[in-house]
């Protein structure tokens, strides 16, 4: 329902056309410039991202430090290209999740806590444009973080052998993961409302998700019970789908199995469901908490 409302609103407010004033009639409000507003929000977040050393560190330095530490301490010196690559994929998602949750939960909480939403509510802003702008900026940040980790891993010995038929899973998993991370960040921003705590909370949540799913699903053998859920939870599902897409080979004796990698269409459907649920939660929060509430 909310998704439908959002799409409907987006479709009906795309125009910036202005009605001509008629001196005999009261003025007519201009239509909401949806695209311009969405870009304004995206640009605002991107500007903040590029000038913050802490965010750059979280996006790049943090996952790379974990990658280097893991490769140096836990992998044998003759570890194969696949082992390095799978570790890189797991930390690429780990880094993306950390930075998106920390940054966007902090930004949302800051807007709520600082009273900026009282100003926003007095402007003819489409809440969907606000959300779209935040999401675009989050996606740019997540893709950047993800790509840097994979590129550094490749430069230091990791190798990827993509399955061309499944390569579409790479952007799909990043997209779905980003939607889930943004939805979670909005929940945190609405509940905690203290932007200064968000970096710590984002890091802790990322670590919990990473370890409880066996390194984002790359080492399910470390889970005591049946690790079936690594093909269900969003972080490990996305990681394992991307492993399947990036490595066209035999996964026996790599620690990744069992369970089998999520290669079927049903897992693509589950990923799509995460996108729908994540969007619905995000739209609900932005419309009700940010633009519908009265947080005095």
């Amino acid at each position: 329902m909310f998704l439908f409302e959002w799409l409907l609103q987006a479709a009906t407010t795309m125009s910036t056309e202005t009605a001509a004033p008629d001196s005999a009639e009261p003025p007519v409000p201009d239509r909401v410039p949806w695209q311009r507003q969405a870009w304004a929000f995206a640009e605002r977040h991107l500007r903040v991202l590029v000038r913050s050393p802490m965010i750059i560190f979280l996006a790049v330095g943090w996952p790379l430090a974990w990658y280097v530490l893991t490769v140096s301490v836990f992998l044998p010196g003759d570890a194969g290209a696949f082992a390095l690559g799978s570790v890189a994929v797991s930390y690429a998602f780990f880094g993306s999740f950390t930075v998106v949750v920390a940054v966007f939960a902090g930004a949302f909480a800051g807007d709520l806590d600082g009273g900026r939403y009282r100003k926003f509510r007095s402007l003819p802003i489409a809440p969907s444009a606000d959300l779209a702008g935040r999401f675009v900026a989050a996606l740019v940040l997540a893709v950047f973080s993800h790509a840097v980790v994979l590129a550094v891993a490749f430069a230091t010995g990791a190798r990827f052998e993509p399955r061309l038929a499944a390569i579409g899973l790479v952007p799909l998993t990043l997209l779905s993961f980003c939607v889930v991370a943004v939805a979670l960040s909005l929940v945190l921003g609405a509940v905690v409302s203290k932007p200064e705590y968000m970096t710590t909370i984002g890091i802790v949540l990322a670590l919990i998700a990473y370890y409880t799913t066996g390194f984002n699903g790359t080492q399910p053998g470390m889970i005591a019970d049946d690790p079936w859920f690594v093909n269900v939870l969003p972080n490990s599902l996305a990681t394992r789908q991307q492993l399947y897409a990036l490595f066209d080979g035999d996964f026996t004796d790599t620690g990744v199995l069992p369970p089998e990698l999520p290669s079927g269409i049903e897992f693509v459907g589950l990923t799509g469901a995460y996108v729908v649920v994540g969007l619905a939660v995000s739209i609900l929060l932005v419309r009700r908490v940010a633009y519908g509430g009265d947080p005095l």
């Binding site: 910036t16 202005t18 003025p27 409000p29 201009d30 239509r31 909401v32 410039p33 311009r36 507003q37 870009w39 304004a40 640009e43 605002r44 500007r47 903040v48 000038r51 913050s52 600082g114 009273g115 900026r116 009282r118 100003k119 926003f120 007095s122 402007l123 003819p124 802003i125």
Partner: peptide, 30 residues
């Protein structure tokens, strides 16, 4: 869309410059 508002509180984003804040709100208002 027919009025413009300045309300009390920290409505300007402290992490943006003054010009960036003004440009941001310029883009938001029709």
């Amino acid at each position: 869309g027919l009025f413009s508002v300045a309300i009390q509180g920290d409505t300007a984003d402290p992490e943006l410059t003054g010009a960036e804040n003004c440009r941001f709100f310029e883009q938001l208002h029709p």
